[in-house]
Amino acid sequence: MARNYSPTVRRRRLGTQLRRLREDAGYKLSDVGDALGWARAKVGRLETSELKTVKNGDLDALLRLYGVEDPAARESLHQLAREAKHKGWWWRYRDVFRGREPLPDFEAEASQIRTYEVATVPGLLQTPEYAEAVFRGGRYTSAEHIQRQVEARMERREILQRHEGQARLWAVIDEAALRRPIGSAEIMRTQFEYLLRIGQLPNIDIQVLPFAAGAHAALGRPFTILDFPESQDPTIVYTDSVGAGQFEEDTGEVAQYVATFSDVQGASLSTVASAQHIEGVLSEESE
Rank of each mutant, 00 (worst) to 15 (best):
P7W: 02
T8M: 03
Q17F: 05
L18H: 07
L18I: 05
R22T: 08
A25I: 02
G26H: 08
Y27F: 15
Y27C: 01
W38C: 09
G44R: 14
R45C: 05
E50S: 11
L51V: 06
L51D: 04
L51M: 14
T53L: 03
V54P: 01
L59D: 02
L59Q: 01
D60G: 03
L63M: 10
L65K: 07
L65S: 03
L65C: 07
L77P: 02
L80A: 03
A81M: 09
A81W: 07
E83Q: 12
K85C: 04
R94H: 13
V96A: 04
P102A: 13
P102R: 03
F106S: 00
S111F: 01
R114M: 01
T115K: 14
A119K: 10
V121Q: 00
P122G: 13
G123I: 09
L124Y: 09
E132Q: 15
V134E: 08
R136E: 14
T141R: 15
R153A: 07
M154T: 07
E155N: 10
Q161Y: 10
Q166D: 00
Q166N: 07
R168L: 13
A171H: 05
I173N: 02
I173E: 02
I173C: 02
D174C: 09
A185T: 10
Q191F: 08
E193R: 14
P202L: 04
D205V: 13
Q207P: 03
Q207W: 02
P210M: 06
P210H: 10
F211G: 05
A212W: 09
G214V: 08
R221L: 13
P222T: 07
P222H: 12
I225G: 00
F228Y: 08
F228H: 07
P229D: 12
S231N: 05
Q232K: 04
Q232P: 01
Y238P: 00
V242H: 12
G243L: 13
A244I: 07
F247K: 00
E248Q: 10
E248P: 02
E249M: 08
G252T: 12
G252H: 15
Y257L: 06
Y257T: 03
Q265N: 13
S268N: 06
V272Q: 11
V272N: 06
V272P: 04
Q276V: 06
E279T: 12
L282P: 03
S283R: 15
E284V: 11
E284R: 15
E287R: 15
E287V: 08
